[in-house]
Computed example of a mutant assay.
Amino acid sequence: MARQKDAFYFDGFRRSADYACQAAKLLSEVMHDFNPDQLRERMDGMHALEKAADGVRHAMMDELVTAFITPFDREDIDELGRVLDDVTDSIEGVLNRMYYDNVTDM
């Protein structure tokens, strides 16, 4: 049976994946109902999701640094957390690129 402290990591992975899914859904909505006048507002929403995902990652890394025993290898916990955060960052990057490249028609 997993220790209660171990659940923190798995909850963090779940929350990170959830933020990535929310970001993907937001990007899909922007693409399917494209309105260049709303792009800046959508970017603000995406940035809020990305910041929340970063918060989860930072909390996990803070816990990882101080943990004596982890549920599996520290390197694997770090890598999985980083990759999940990178997904959200990349999705935000697509929306930013659309804005900065002044995409006006989809």
Rank of each mutant, 00 (worst) to 15 (best):
K25G: 07
M43W: 01
D105C: 07
P36N: 11
R82V: 03
D101I: 00
K5Y: 01
E50C: 07
A17Q: 09
Y100T: 10
R14K: 05
L27I: 01
V83E: 15
M43C: 12
E29H: 05
A52Q: 12
I69S: 14
Y99A: 15
A53I: 00
P71T: 03
I77V: 07
D105N: 09
R15D: 14
D37N: 14
M98A: 07
R15H: 01
P71Q: 11
D89I: 01
H32N: 15
I77L: 15
R97Y: 08
I69C: 12
E50H: 04
D11E: 13
T104M: 14
L84K: 10
D6K: 02
A20F: 06
D85V: 03
I77W: 06
E92I: 00
Q4W: 03
V87W: 12
D11N: 11
R42I: 00
L84Y: 11
V56G: 08
H47T: 05
D37M: 11
P71G: 13
F34Y: 09
D37S: 14
T70D: 08
A7T: 03
E29G: 09
L27F: 05
L26P: 04
I77A: 11
F34L: 09
R82P: 01
Q22W: 05
F8Q: 12
A48Y: 05
S16P: 02
K25T: 11
R82S: 15
Q22S: 11
S28T: 10
D6G: 05
V87T: 11
D105Q: 08
G45R: 10
E41T: 00
R14I: 00
A17M: 06
Q38D: 15
L64R: 01
E75D: 15
H32V: 01
F13H: 07
S16H: 02
M106D: 13
Y19I: 03
T66S: 13
D85H: 11
S90P: 03
F13P: 04
E92W: 05
N96T: 07
G93A: 07
Q38W: 02
R97G: 11
M60G: 12
E29S: 14
K25P: 01
A17D: 13
F10Y: 12
D73W: 01
F13S: 08
E75F: 06
R57Y: 10
E75C: 06
E41I: 00
A67V: 01
L80Q: 14
D76F: 02
Q38P: 04
D105P: 02
M43V: 04
Y19H: 09
D101H: 08
Y9C: 10
L39I: 00
E79W: 05
L27D: 13
N96C: 08
H58D: 15
Q22E: 13
A20E: 12
C21R: 09
D76P: 07
E29A: 12
Y99K: 10
H32E: 15
N102T: 03
A48N: 13
M31W: 03
L64S: 04
E29V: 02
I69L: 15
D62F: 03
A23P: 02
K25V: 07
A7D: 14
Y9V: 09
T88G: 11
E75S: 14
F68I: 13
A53V: 02
D54F: 02
H32C: 10
L27V: 03
A52I: 05
R3M: 09
M1C: 08
H58F: 01
T66G: 07
K51F: 00
V65G: 12
E50D: 12
K5R: 05
F10E: 11
T104Q: 13
R97S: 13
V94F: 05
Y100A: 09
D44F: 04
D85L: 12
V30D: 15
R3A: 11
